[in-house]
Amino acid sequence: MAAIEVLDLTKTYGELQAVDAVSLEVAEGEFVGILGPNGAGKTTLLEMVEGLRRPDAGTATVLGLPVWPRNADLLPRMGVQLQASAFFERLTAREQLHTFASLYAVPSATADEWLERVGLDDKAGTRVEDLSGGQAQRLSIACALVHDPDVVFLDEPTAALDPQARRNLWDLLSGLNNSGRTVVLTTHYMDEAEVLCDRVAIMDSGRILQVDSPAALIRRLDAPARITVAPGAVGLEEARGIAAVDDVQESVDGVVLTTRDPAHVVARLAERDQLDGVRVQTGTLEDVFLDLTGREYRA
């Protein structure tokens, strides 16, 4: 059974078609990312799936139950982290988590375990206003998970974090679906979607353009690989002579060989000991986005 079924969800704000007939199915235990630039409609889509917003058209069900109107039987099985830090003012990290635990009839001991799991046990007595961005995000994720929900929605959990804090948070997020939990996250970071998600839905201008695993999306793109070696490591004419090389360019970085068979080309270069400073770039999700929308990705 699908954990989440979305069919033709549509939402319009005045002139703006925020979400345009989006359909999506998420299997139980799957980690799905909705990737797109700001303003793509990710949050509006997520809020309709959570049951926060009434869709203009279409339906969304979670665990087989319709999310609209508000269904008090479904809510305890859903965990939600919203974009802003939705906290009670002036409570400490522990008090915050205990309050949310009480709303779900979860014992305080479980709440304390979660504090430890998100690495905030040494910040237990710190007020939420005094937590760093990363710590606040960890706390709000703990608040979303404290009642051990079957389905978790995370709306841009790493937005506004520095790269270090973002990677720290990935460690926490990557194991979330291990025990069969279904996770849906929105992000505008390509690398984040690639690292965390089983499948990625690429969204732009209110529509989902493609859904697949990151590897399959890139493979389908059928983009050539670019092999770069140090300047002078290989002569231009010599490089053009290697089988399967489609194009050779010289740049300040060095010599760039374009090919659809990087394994073969690297092997040939290795035979001649011409691998000085080698770097192989295959297609990225950015290329996928460019291919799908015809424009550069700007988060």
């Binding site: 008090a72 039987d73 809510l75 305890p76 099985r77 009670f88 003012e89 002036r90 409570l91 008090e95 205990h98 309050t99 009480s102 709303l103 779900y104 009839a105 979860v106 007020r127 009642h147 051990d148 929900p149 079957d150 025990s179 069969g180 939990r181």
Partner: peptide, 28 residues
Amino acid sequence: MSSTSGRPSSRSAFVALSVAIFKGFLRD
């Protein structure tokens, strides 16, 4: 996977919310 938690009694949720709001007031 089954949920270990359920719908709270409205009384315990009421108490938890009241305590949270009152603490927030005293610290403001």
